[in-house]
């Protein structure tokens, strides 16, 4: 199925918004199922989600453990003396946090089903200033760059003979926190170089831009643009009502 990039952006907003709102694994799993179905419709390779999530696996495990330990509720499954360590509520909260990350990442993959040029064009046709649209597209392009940068650093550290698996957690955290600054600064330097390169190629030389192509909504776009936001608003209202009661 071929949809307008703007339609897909609305879908991503709806799915991510609901993922941030929900905190129970059941609902988040349903949301994940919808997201995966959408990705399959757009013929997205689901294996790529795994590779995007892989570098964040340790963070997700960390968040899961933290939630399990520090959000106790329900039945106690494991305790040390009077201190509950693992509870049913803690496990559900932990699973909810991890699922939320997975849903948001999977939903963002919908943005990868069209090219950056269409993304900018879509935003500009929504009257977003070109510079702002371009900035957003660059920011999206920088996310995988930043991820690759982190992967490169971890590989380079190990190739200097440091066995990260054997480094104690305390030392590992110190090492990572020291490496974080150069990685962020390196990304900033790259952004600076990109800005110079863009200006050298005449970015914003003329005040007005013209476009060869124009995006047009199809009937399918109108259907999705009606169904998705309507369903999302209905679910938000239902969720608020449930919380109120």
């Amino acid at each position: 199925m071929k949809l307008d990039p703007r339609t897909k952006m609305v879908m991503v907003l709806c799915l991510s918004g609901l993922a941030l709102l929900y905190n129970t694994p059941g609902r988040l799993l349903l949301l994940l199922a919808v997201t995966v179905a959408m990705l399959l419709i757009f013929r997205f390779d689901l294996g790529a989600i795994g590779s995007y999530l892989k570098p964040f696996l340790s963070l997700m495990v960390f968040l899961f453990v933290i939630q399990c330990l520090f959000a106790p509720s329900g039945c106690v499954l494991l305790a040390v003396g009077p201190v509950p360590l693992v509870t049913t509520g803690g496990l559900l909260t932990g699973a909810g946090v991890v699922l939320r990350i997975v849903v948001v990442t999977a939903a963002a993959m919908l943005l990868a089903t069209f090219n950056a040029r269409d993304f900018i064009l879509g935003l500009v046709q929504w009257k977003v200033p070109y510079e702002l649209a371009f900035m957003v597209s660059i920011a999206l392009r920088f996310l995988p760059v930043f991820r690759d940068e982190l992967v490169n650093v971890v590989t380079a550290v190990q190739l200097r003979g440091v066995d990260l698996k054997k480094v104690p957690w305390g030392q590992k955290i110190t090492m990572y926190s020291r490496l974080l600054f150069p990685v962020i600064y390196g990304a900033m330097l790259k952004a600076q170089r990109l800005a110079v390169s863009m200006e050298a190629r005449g970015f914003r030389v003329y005040p007005r831009r013209t476009y060869l192509r124009r995006l047009e909504f199809s009937r399918a776009d109108y259907v999705v643009l009606t169904v998705f936001p309507a369903a999302a608003i209905a679910l938000v209202i239902r969720h608020i009502n449930l919380l109120a009661h």
Binding site: V153, A156, L159, R160, G161, L179, F181
Partner: peptide, 18 residues
């Protein structure tokens, strides 16, 4: 791709120090 420390000296000594 392989420079990740805060200073040049740290970079050279990273492997040994760790």
């Amino acid at each position: 791709l392989q420079l990740f420390c805060g200073t040049v000296a740290e970079e050279v000594g990273f492997g040994l120090a760790n």
